[in-house]
Write a protein that binds this DNA or RNA. Structure first.
Length: 464
DNA sequence: CCTGCCGGGAA
DNA sequence: TTCCCGGCAGG
């Protein structure tokens, strides 16, 4: 059967784990699953220890006594040294630690006199045995087993660090993931997948590739160590992945702060520790508040394409001096992603280190610490008052240049997130560097100028 | 000097 | 409101 084969290939634990899931889910399903379903008479329930060499693999289904009931569980970890097995009981949503001899790989006979799962007293339909105890699993040589162990150890290690990282659902309902064992293609995200498959099989996306914003929203309960680890383990690669297209930073919106950090966890920590305070219960309560005190800002690293406007997150309180004309204008202005940009459009390269400040640092956050040099990051919002001008840039003959200039004259932009007083604005508009209608069309084609240019007003067509 | 554009005035 | 232009300021 295809899923089974696929599972076996994809799972670092091999068919041992995945067939456990499969047999549990689809008992008597075709010849693939059927091969494991009939209970051999030789199967005898007993402690794993009694089985001698039986090794409990992560993800393997076992039975333990818990609350006067023999409950099925899934092996999390088998510590051969301590002779202990960490078992997860999905329908109790509990993790228990048992001695190896207290763990059964099959349901005990008195509780499960019949192979039929319907007689089970436990809520979860229980197969009569597990694969390892009843199936003649080909013994692999020592190296392979060691590889499995190493794999499992690595997987479990990473899981134990921060299961929250991989899917928020795991936080709340591990049981569901552990035992529901969704069918068909998805079955490897069931019990076996929960433990290992997603992370160690080299799958391109163990968890959906989250943007920092996503992760910020999706893992609101992250804190402390988890956040650190998230940053170390996952965020850094994400940032690196983005490097070729866009860098994202987060700006603290706290009044008179303006700290910009490159990681969502960093900014959250900053907000929490510096502004919200981090004392115990309050931390819990205010955790989500952190989201309101930072904003995501984007900076193009290379001129591959402009940032998707949907990623721009603006502060709920827009500065009164830079009203946003409408939600569509800025995206229009930035949506011409297919343009090729002139080679001279070298942007100040943040070089991954937010510390090397750009010239705009002082304007963007006067009170921010030194690393606010990353205030190269910016949220563009200034064009707002120029209204429909942005749309005209579609037919600009030098949109690339416009765009470049747009991004290279940031001193005149003010992040929508921060709300600086108007005094930050120069009384007179800084001379734009883009080619204006006059230059583009020439004075002899004055009729093609935008009206603003014709009126000697700020050009609306080629906005800086 | 050229250019962009603000401020203000005329229609 | 539309249109125009004097004048300022940056390059």
């Amino acid at each position: 059967m295809l899923p089974k084969i696929r599972l076996g290939k994809r799972s670092p634990l091999g068919a041992l784990v995945s067939t456990t899931c499969l047999s549990e889910r689809s008992d008597h399903q075709g010849e693939g699953g059927g091969g494991v379903t009939p209970v051999p008479p030789a199967t005898r329930p007993g402690p794993a220890a009694a089985m001698g060499k039986i090794k409990l693999h992560p993800g393997q289904k076992v039975y333990v006594h818990c609350s006067s009931c023999e409950c099925p569980g899934v092996v999390e970890q088998h510590n051969h040294v301590d002779n202990q097995v960490s078992v997860f009981l999905p329908h109790l949503a509990r993790h228990v630690l048992r001695k190896t001899e207290d763990v059964w790989t099959s349901p005990s006979a008195h509780l499960f006199p019949s192979p039929s799962p319907s007689t089970s007293t436990c809520p979860v339909p229980t197969p009569a045995r597990t694969v390892s105890s009843c199936i003649d699993v080909p013994r692999r040589n020592a190296e392979e087993v060691d590889m499995d162990e190493m794999m499992a150890a690595m997987v479990l290690t990473s899981l134990s660090f921060s299961p929250l990282l991989h899917s928020p659902k795991h936080t709340d309902t591990p049981a569901a993931l552990g035992m529901e064992c969704p069918g068909g293609e998805l079955s490897d995200s069931g019990s076996s997948g929960y433990w290992s498959v997603g992370h160690s099989n080299g799958s391109p996306a163990p968890s959906p590739p989250m943007t920092e914003a996503d992760s910020g929203l999706a893992t609101p309960s992250d804190e402390g160590l988890d956040m650190e680890l998230e940053q170390v383990l996952f965020e850094e690669p994400v940032l690196r992945k983005r490097k070729n297209s866009m860098k994202v930073a987060y700006r603290c919106l706290w009044p008179s702060c303006g700290k910009v950090l490159t990681s969502v966890v960093g900014i959250k920590r900053h907000v929490r520790t510096l502004h919200l305070g981090s004392s115990g219960e309050h931390e819990r309560c205010s955790r989500r508040e952190e989201d309101f005190y930072y904003t995501e800002i984007h900076q193009r690293e290379h001129q591959a394409r402009p940032p998707p406007p949907a990623h721009l997150s603006f502060s709920p309180v827009a500065p009164p001096c830079a009203p946003w004309p409408g939600p569509s204008s800025p995206p229009l202005a930035m949506a011409h992603s297919d343009r090729t940009l002139p080679g001279d459009g070298a942007l100040p390269e943040p070089a991954g280190d937010p510390g090397d400040g750009g010239p705009q640092a002082s304007l963007l956050s006067k009170s921010a610490p030194s690393d606010s040099g990353s205030s190269l990051w910016q949220v563009r919002s200034e064009h707002s008052y120029q209204g429909a001008g942005a749309v005209f840039r579609v037919r600009s003959v030098s949109v690339g240049e416009q765009w470049h200039q747009q991004h290279s004259a940031p001193t005149r932009t003010t992040p929508a997130s921060t709300s600086p007083p108007r005094c930050h604005w120069p009384s007179r508009r800084v001379r734009g560097e883009a080619k204006k209608c006059r230059k583009v069309y020439g004075i002899e084609h004055r009729d093609q100028w935008c009206t603003a240019c014709r009126w000697k007003k700020a050009c609306q067509r080629f906005i800086d």
